[in-house]
Simulated assay, not measured.
Amino acid sequence: MKAVVCERTELSVRDLPDPEPGPGQVVLEVVRAGICGSDLHARFHADELAEVSSAIGMTDIMRTTDAVVMGHEFSGRVASYGPGTRKRYAEGTPVVAFPMVRREGAMQMIGLSPRCTGAYAEQVLVEDAFLFEVDNGYSPELAALTEPMAVAHHAVRKSRIGKGETAVVVGCGPIGLAVILMLKARGVRHVVASDYSAARRALAERCGADEVVDPAATSPWSTFEGHKRYRTDATPLLDYAHKAIGDLRKVPFLPWTRLVRAAELAGQSPQQGPVVFECVGVPGVLDHVIAGAPLYTRVVVVGVCMEPDRITPVMAINKEISLQFVFAYDPAEYADTLRMLTSGAVDPSPLHTGTVGLGEVAQAFDDLGSAEHHAKVLVDPTA
């Protein structure tokens, strides 16, 4: 089969042996594979990623000297089964798969390990247990977006954001846009999107953002100045606390501390902030968020920063900022995401901004490093 191999940061199309399914495994003909931001990072920063991953026991992450076929976002059609599989789906059935496969006795991350071949190829090997049918006549092309949408679904679930809270999405690349879609699917009524690119701000609007901000002209944090619920200045909050506690203590026969706790349970505590989704992954952005965001903000870090970064902890302490780092998703979230797509609850089509063949992947990688008009580029191995 033909596949795109990454070796020493270079991408080239090569002829490789067709994958052979082992027990409980399935070979798919790849329909589409998405180019992920983590693939762009891994091309040049694989060694750093491998070192960090090995610290938690993930020892098979690719290094720059490895010859690796990347591609972990994909859809396909069933081609053949290995021994011991249930053969639930007929040959040619459109499917997606949770991107992990057992190789040499251990589970490997498809597209990020030298021990298994990713989906920038004509075929890919997957686990039967991780196989999901793409039903309802859903587009096999858009089904390839299940994986990045699952990343966003996981991030939004981890945030525990309520419908009445404000979300701020910093960075409207593919994952930022996916987060916006999942926030709106959750019923969040006010979503602010911030990006320097006019094209990406337009995509954010298509994904349902209620307000878009060009940070070069208007800070996303300026929208909270004078906000009745979220505060950027601690002084009025202290004044409010003084007056409120004074008034509560005048109420006879009712412990004022219980009234304060009851207000918290009712969602009326003044100690509330918005939920910020950092979807850039560039040094300095997290510190910028901490410095500018309102008090009591919850920050969900979705962007993958591959370099050391610095924050100012005392600012986060003074504001009581909460930081939540998120990674990937679990199989149930992946399956739930597919159902949201095929049922029409979420429409990821605004993310799809281009399709290339295997021979154009290298150029697409270069373009995605700077192209503002692109969000998600899909690879068609048959083109």
Rank of each mutant, 00 (worst) to 15 (best):
E7N: 15
E7P: 10
E7G: 11
R8H: 14
E10Y: 14
E10L: 14
E10K: 15
E10A: 15
L11T: 00
S12K: 10
S12W: 01
V13Q: 11
Q25Y: 04
V26R: 03
V27Y: 03
L28D: 04
E29C: 09
V31N: 06
A33D: 07
C36Y: 00
G37F: 01
S38R: 02
S38H: 01
A42K: 01
F44R: 15
D47C: 08
E48L: 09
A50I: 00
S53W: 01
S54M: 03
S54L: 01
I56D: 13
G57A: 13
G57P: 04
G57F: 03
T59G: 12
R63M: 08
T65C: 10
G76K: 07
V78L: 06
S80R: 15
Y81V: 13
G82S: 06
P83V: 07
P83G: 11
G84Q: 07
R86M: 08
K87M: 11
I110D: 03
R115M: 11
C116L: 10
A119M: 03
A121Y: 03
E127W: 07
F132D: 14
F132G: 09
Y138H: 15
Y138E: 04
L142R: 13
A143L: 11
L145S: 05
L145Y: 00
T146Y: 00
E147P: 01
A150Q: 05
A150S: 13
A152K: 09
A152L: 12
H153L: 15
A155N: 04
